[in-house]
């Protein structure tokens, strides 16, 4: 296992970028570069990450980036991978870096196509659970009950289970991560780099602007998501499901904190009733029952 001190001091997300203060996706971008260095080409659709580097003709990204249409990350990545192969360039990793809107909603067909073509790249969905860039609208990743500008009384539907949608594509590697657990995060990206084919990593990236909590609590929010079991750290490697620490120690419900502790810290859940909170707890417990069965089958 790598330690934080062994990580490079080199930065490829340069100082002066314009993410909001306390931005979880910005921490995630730094960790991505700590994992892979600068031998990468990023494909970034319209999302906060296409705004964070700042306006043309300057950029805070010190690696090659192909900005792309909101819906086209998977297709563009397939093109970049083909171009690299044509030029016989083997030491560059192609990374699709897209938001939840660009993944769960409009980009899902391009992603599905790339996975079916077995494009050799890492697709990372950094999930801030809303359309952040355009001012916080609901997405297919917004959780039940959450306020957004298009769900003023709280979203009435549940979040899609995107990792398992990708599992149905039978790709060789799927993982979840969270920047609050930087070593787990970096090791998963490094592992994905070594595997041939389409790799999908789903990152819960807390967003103080959309989730309505104090900017200092971003890392704490990710930690609470994991400790309550709302977010689960796992891998599906060649079809094998495995829970990762600390989630692997939380199978017993008594070990998990009540989801209420996570929900009540965020302004976006302010309108949740006790019944809504119980509903969320029940769904989380059902997910965990599924994880327990999957983990014990392997």
């Amino acid at each position: 296992m790598v330690s934080i001190k062994e990580l490079s001091k080199e930065e490829y997300l340069l100082k002066g970028h314009i993410a909001c203060a306390g931005c979880g996706p910005a921490i995630s971008l730094r960790l991505l570069f700590k994992a892979l260095g600068n031998k990468v080409i990023l494909v970034v659709p319209a999302c906060c990450s296409s705004v964070i580097p700042g306006p043309y003709p300057f950029t805070s990204f010190a690696v090659p980036v192909q900005n792309m249409l909101f819906e086209a990350t998977g297709a563009t990545a397939s093109g970049v991978v083909a171009a690299l192969r044509q030029r016989d360039i083997k030491d560059v990793t192609v990374v699709g870096w897209a938001g939840d809107g660009g993944t769960f909603d409009i980009g899902i067909q391009a992603l599905s196509g790339a996975a079916e073509r077995e494009t050799d790249f890492i697709y990372i969905c950094y999930d801030n659970e809303a359309y952040g860039n355009t001012g916080v609208q609901r997405s297919g990743a917004t959780p039940y009950g959450a306020w957004t500008t298009t769900t003023p009384t709280g979203k009435k539907e549940r979040k899609k289970d995107i990792a398992f949608i990708m599992a149905a594509h039978r790709i060789p590697y799927i993982a979840t991560a969270c920047p609050s657990y930087p070593i787990d995060f970096i090791e998963k990206i490094r592992k994905a780099k070594e595997i041939k084919g389409t790799k999908f990593i789903h990152i819960l990236a807390p967003c103080p602007t959309g989730w309505r909590y104090d900017t200092s609590k971003t890392v704490e929010m990710g930690r609470l998501a994991v400790r309550t079991g709302v977010w689960t750290l796992f891998e599906i490697e060649h079809g094998k499901f495995k829970l990762n620490p600390p989630s692997s120690r939380l199978i017993d419900r008594a070990k998990r904190k009540p989801v209420k502790e996570y929900l009540t810290l965020q302004g976006r859940f302010r309108k949740l009733t006790e019944v809504d909170i119980e509903k969320t707890q029940k769904w989380v417990d059902e997910d965990w029952e599924r994880y327990r069965k999957l983990a014990s089958n392997q």
């Binding site: 002066g16 970028h17 580097p53 700042g54 003709p57 300057f58 950029t59 805070s60 010190a62 090659p64």
Partner: peptide, 27 residues
Amino acid sequence: MSSSAKTRKEKPITTLSSPTVGVDKTG
């Protein structure tokens, strides 16, 4: 990709952006 241009006017016409420390003085 790198360029020493400091303003838009100095930049050659291209769709490429130059990696720059301090796109904004966010302090």
